[in-house]
Design a protein around this nucleic acid. Sequence first.
DNA 1: AAATTTCTGTCAATTTGATAACAAGTGAAT
DNA 2: ATTCACTTGTTATCAAATTGACAGAAATTT
Lengths: 212, 212
Amino acid sequence: MDRDTQISLTVIRRLPKYHRYLTELKDKGISRISSQELSNLTGFTASQIRQDLNNFGGFGQQGYGYNVDDLHRELGKILGLDKRYTAVIVGTGNLGQAIANYKGIEEAGFKVVSLFDRNPKMIGLKIRDIEVRDIDLLEDYVRENNIDVGIITVPKEGAQPIADRLVKAGIKGIWNFAPCDLIVPETVIVENVRLNESILILSYFLKNLENK
Amino acid sequence: MDRDTQISLTVIRRLPKYHRYLTELKDKGISRISSQELSNLTGFTASQIRQDLNNFGGFGQQGYGYNVDDLHRELGKILGLDKRYTAVIVGTGNLGQAIANYKGIEEAGFKVVSLFDRNPKMIGLKIRDIEVRDIDLLEDYVRENNIDVGIITVPKEGAQPIADRLVKAGIKGIWNFAPCDLIVPETVIVENVRLNESILILSYFLKNLENK
DNA sequence: AAATTTCTGTCAATTTGATAACAAGTGAAT
DNA sequence: ATTCACTTGTTATCAAATTGACAGAAATTT
């Protein structure tokens, strides 16, 4: 395994899909799979799958294929599923609450330990047993509890200031739902969920349906 | 403008970002912009921006650049913002409710006219003035009201059956929040929001921070 | 145990996407 | 009016990503 060569983002973005299908296969009790079968499932070509996986090591065996359990575990490790991270959600609007209730976060190894909002009506409430705290306490809380990740679900205008505060308080990563590009030091990881862009893509293709 | 050549998905996925920055520029009252300035904003190279835009027509002028209002309007048209579509949300859990309250949907020209759920406790309730109906009524409602888009926010297991029913009822597009790959006829547009994959990417990079 | 099939890892070829370069317009300054 | 700086559209070049091909190893069949 060559730890020096940078693996392209294009490859990395395919990994979760491999992992998802391997979870399904595992649940079905299937113990081995070939790149061709994975191709049928995922839609990627068999060649591409073999190349992708080989970026991280030779997990397969000639004449046999890949062992589902092993590959699932290895991909899990690559994706950091063997790690546990703490997170806070900033913004307890509809989206913030939905994310607080979203099980996928736990499955990915993240534990949401506090929510923050500036609305006095929200402060003190509990969402799924997680307390909502005053946004003024954000920096202290993040610092004192060594929080790894901030999840930003505030409106666009508030997102950058919140990001700045999280960064100052020592956050390692941000899961950003606000429709803007956050400016952070390059040591801080930002992963964006672009609902606005996603729905525009849908709109684009719907419109193009009509042109045919 | 060459309507025959297929424009690559890579290009299309960049359009919403252009549009977003043009909205901001317009709001600031800025009337002209060069590809270089757009590059500074978006992070794409000026060359790439000019190439992207030229897929759809020559919107710029040598020595001047692009007129913000014009380009904004043209990109809006390309993205289908001049069209109005009706939508229903299937699944009124936390995510479904958050989406029902999400303003970006309207901004993209979509109008959510009904929600559907199988939970009797939800049926008859109103979320943001939109009624929640029994899932059994889904097909009839979609057919009778000529619904364009179905938004799927049900758990993974229920997503494909719902997609099948929507397709049968004549839906044109699906905005899918369930973590699975829907199988639909190729005439039906599917745009996925992959929260599970997004957070795994964050996890990947967080883990890789440590390895350095 | 030999022959055949299967399937990976890897390298080469091809395709796609991004960047660079530049001729030709345009507007502003003098 | 002329010059100069600017900026697009477009072509040429370069880089990245995908696909194809195949040797060699393992598993399976005969």
